[in-house]
Simulated scan of single mutants.
Amino acid sequence: MVLVVVVALAAGTKLAKDHGQGADWYTGVGQWVGGLGSLIAAGIALWIATSDRRRADRLRSEEQERQAADLAREAGLVMIDARRLASVVRIAPGDSKAGVSVRNRRRSRLFDIEIVRFVQQGEEVADLELQRQFGVFDPAANEGKNRTRSDLIDLLPVLVLNSDQVLTLFPKNRPDVPADYVAVRYTDESGMRWEVDTDGSPARKVG
């Protein structure tokens, strides 16, 4: 910028001399250059401020995306499986029936667990009924003492599934065939509600 001003002054001085202008010419030039300099400085300051704001917005957006991805990865630690499972009440050793398991591999508890989609033999079941009682299998329990705990409850939404616990659910009045697809929703300790499924898709935040 200084070089431009110097060149402009030199050219202006030569033109002024060629046209018989006096020293007063410099006063006008100085004012003009000062105004131009102020305008350029204001433009540079605006550009810097705008660039800083855009960079801050971009960094904030990237951080929010990272946090959302971390939350989704943690939510995906809740594993859903549809297969033959050990029934809560067994008639014979090794007895099993088609059911759904919810395994909590998170370090925190789950609340308000709900099956929101159940597809069996190619048919989506809209009026799914579950066995009235639910068994919670606790891998952390002692081998010789209630490894399969009889934590039986009447209402699924009030159940709290702790870390490392597995909840088993059994459809009522349905064929004894594992489901093709199951989607389950739950609420974590922070109050966020998530949906996970048997396909192993990324956890989806809902609500």
Results as ranks from 00 to 15, higher is better:
residue 3 L to K: 10
residue 3 L to Q: 12
residue 4 V to Y: 12
residue 4 V to W: 11
residue 10 A to R: 07
residue 11 A to D: 08
residue 13 T to E: 06
residue 14 K to I: 00
residue 14 K to C: 00
residue 20 G to T: 04
residue 23 A to R: 05
residue 25 W to C: 06
residue 25 W to A: 14
residue 26 Y to H: 09
residue 30 G to W: 09
residue 31 Q to T: 12
residue 33 V to N: 05
residue 35 G to F: 12
residue 37 G to H: 05
residue 37 G to Q: 07
residue 38 S to W: 13
residue 39 L to T: 14
residue 43 G to L: 15
residue 44 I to L: 13
residue 44 I to A: 15
residue 47 W to H: 09
residue 49 A to I: 00
residue 50 T to G: 09
residue 51 S to T: 04
residue 53 R to I: 07
residue 53 R to P: 00
residue 54 R to E: 14
residue 58 R to I: 12
residue 59 L to P: 00
residue 61 S to R: 08
residue 64 Q to H: 10
residue 64 Q to F: 10
residue 72 A to H: 03
residue 77 L to I: 05
residue 77 L to N: 11
residue 78 V to E: 03
residue 82 A to E: 05
residue 84 R to H: 13
residue 84 R to L: 09
residue 85 L to N: 01
residue 85 L to W: 06
residue 87 S to T: 10
residue 88 V to R: 06
residue 88 V to Q: 08
residue 91 I to T: 04
residue 91 I to K: 13
residue 92 A to N: 08
residue 93 P to G: 06
residue 101 S to L: 04
residue 102 V to Q: 00
residue 105 R to V: 11
residue 105 R to Q: 12
residue 108 S to K: 07
residue 111 F to T: 06
residue 116 V to T: 07
residue 119 V to L: 11
residue 120 Q to G: 05
residue 120 Q to K: 12
residue 123 E to A: 13
residue 124 E to H: 13
residue 125 V to G: 06
residue 130 L to T: 02
residue 134 F to G: 02
residue 137 F to K: 00
residue 139 P to D: 11
residue 143 E to R: 10
residue 143 E to F: 13
residue 144 G to D: 00
residue 145 K to Q: 12
residue 145 K to D: 10
residue 148 T to W: 10
residue 148 T to R: 00
residue 148 T to A: 09
residue 150 S to I: 15
residue 151 D to C: 02
residue 152 L to T: 15
residue 153 I to H: 10
residue 155 L to R: 10
residue 156 L to S: 07
residue 159 L to K: 08
residue 159 L to G: 06
residue 162 N to Y: 11
residue 162 N to C: 08
residue 168 T to H: 09
residue 172 K to E: 15
residue 175 P to A: 14
residue 176 D to C: 01
residue 177 V to P: 05
residue 177 V to A: 10
residue 178 P to S: 07
residue 181 Y to K: 09
residue 183 A to N: 03
residue 185 R to Y: 04
residue 185 R to D: 10
residue 187 T to C: 02
residue 188 D to C: 04
residue 189 E to D: 12
residue 191 G to H: 07
residue 191 G to I: 03
residue 192 M to P: 01
residue 196 V to M: 04
residue 197 D to K: 02
residue 198 T to I: 04
residue 201 S to E: 11
residue 201 S to A: 15
residue 202 P to E: 07
residue 204 R to C: 02
residue 207 G to Q: 12
